[in-house]
């Protein structure tokens, strides 16, 4: 298992805890991601993935523990931390009535990228995703797959070092899902660290590392091959079900 406190980590969680009332959503989660690493956060529904993303994006603060992005503590320097993060939320966060271009422009302005520079980045991102011709269409007119692509493009406009994807393939057809995964896997070569939350084992199989989260705890953290080996062979799916099933029994 890779050392969770690696010095070269660009995103690091240390003993993070979060409760909503009496319900403990995260029970001391530690995690480290290096530049250029694609980490799949694999967990069943209700494992705490969404809570973790709420903390990682500064929507809430953790009750205990520490989250650092590029060395910035998200509790004490949220602005610096947020500047290094790109997010694709589980729920669509596009303004349906604005054009694709206007949605992207809204983002560049919020991130302080001005005029021509913003225009160039938007044009390049749209060209890369093959959406140049849709730039002036309202988002409402786009397919689900294309809306997700726009959100991925938007999350990269400010060139973040860390990309957070919260179950981004939910509701997509297999082809769009594959395309999105390939787009994000390709970002590794640029040194972007990716945290990809999913409950689909097949998406986790291509990750550099898989972190299995269940009932607010990290059950395993390692390469897909090492997880399979630890489970005594078979498939990642079997290893995942074995782990989370056993944990559910213990928690239940």
């Amino acid at each position: 298992m890779p050392e969770a406190t690696a010095d070269d980590a660009i995103l690091r969680l240390r003993e993070v805890r979060k409760s909503y009332g009496p319900r403990e959503a995260l029970k001391g989660v530690s995690l480290a991601i290096r530049p250029g690493e694609f980490v799949a956060l694999l967990g069943p529904n209700g494992a705490g993935k969404s809570t973790m993303f709420q903390l990682l994006t500064g929507l809430f603060n953790a009750d205990a523990g520490e989250i650092r992005v590029c060395g910035h503590d998200i509790r004490h320097s949220p602005v610096a931390a947020l500047a290094s993060i790109g997010v694709v939320f589980q729920q669509t966060t596009l303004d349906m009535d604005l054009s694709v271009e206007a949605n992207l422009r809204f983002h560049t302005r919020l991130h302080g990228i001005a005029g021509r520079e913003a225009g160039e980045r938007i044009a390049a991102a749209l060209a890369r995703l093959g959406l140049t011709e849709r730039a002036d269409d309202p988002v409402r007119a786009l397919s689900g797959g294309n809306r997700r692509k726009v959100e991925l493009a938007r999350a990269q406009l400010h060139r973040p070092s860390v990309l957070l994807m919260d179950e981004p393939t939910v509701g997509l057809d297999p082809a769009s899902r594959r395309q999105l995964l390939d787009e994000v896997l390709a970002l590794r070569s640029g040194g972007v660290a990716v945290l990809w939350a999913t409950h689909l084992v097949e998406e986790a199989e291509e990750a550099d590392r898989v972190v299995v989260l269940s009932a607010g705890k990290v059950l395993a953290d390692g390469t897909p091959a090492s997880l399979v080996a630890a489970a005594g062979g078979g498939s990642l799916a079997a290893a995942f079900l074995g782990m989370t099933g056993r944990n559910a029994e213990l928690a239940g």
């Binding site: 500047a83 993060i85 966060t93 349906m96 809204f106």
Partner: peptide, 15 residues
């Protein structure tokens, strides 16, 4: 409800 608020609140500016 539309989620746009999340986008706004994760912009790198003081809330």
């Amino acid at each position: 409800e539309m989620g746009v608020m999340r986008l706004l609140l994760t912009a790198p500016l003081p809330r």
